[in-house]
């Protein structure tokens, strides 16, 4: 199925484009890619990127080169819940390694892997600006800070419950 925004989402694209002077519509590319990734399964397929290019009237390559540059854009399918564990210096000092190990113990996935049921993807990321609240991870648009094993257990349970409620 070809990707296609709803009318409401197309209005949102128009609102984003209106924030720049005329002729500078390309500036809306990153905000529109965020919207596209959220809408079309958490990642950007070639079809999705081509669709965004059509919307902004730019060449597909202009979308590909941007999508591939920024770490928040996924160019391959990911699980329903993406756990992004920060591992840079300050988080490392506060035990981020053990968080990654514990997620492996619980879910059997290493960084870059997705559970066979397609529910969870584990990623390690670089500094998210939460150094004083380490160790931490990002889940969707939210930060989960001061992580402990208990908190990770609760987080995994709530993700599973959320998926079950949607089915």
């Amino acid at each position: 199925m070809k990707p296609s925004f709803t009318n409401e989402q197309l209005q949102e694209v128009q609102r984003l484009v209106s924030r720049y002077p005329q002729g500078r519509e390309k500036s809306a590319l990153i905000p529109v890619l965020h919207l596209a990734q959220n809408t079309f399964g958490g990642w950007l397929s070639t079809e999705t990127m081509d669709y965004v290019a059509t919307l902004l009237q730019i060449k597909p390559i202009e979308v590909y080169e941007v999508a591939s540059f920024y770490s928040m854009f996924n160019l391959n399918p990911v699980g329903k819940h993406v756990l992004e564990v920060c591992q840079t210096g300050p988080c490392m000092l506060n035990g981020s390694d053990s968080i990654v190990d514990y997620i492996y113990e619980r879910l059997g996935i290493r960084p870059g892997e997705t559970t066979p049921d397609g529910q969870f993807t584990l990623k390690t990321v670089e500094c998210l600006g939460a150094c004083g609240y380490a160790p931490m991870l990002q889940l969707g648009e939210h930060y989960k800070e001061h992580l402990t094993k208990e908190k990770i257990d609760a987080l995994i349970e709530s993700c599973i419950a959320k998926s079950a409620a949607l089915n």
Binding site: R19, I30, P31, L33, H34, Y70, S71, F73, E126
Partner: peptide, 10 residues
Amino acid sequence: IYVQRGAGAY
């Protein structure tokens, strides 16, 4: 004033 979100790049 407008807010523009980046997408992960130091």
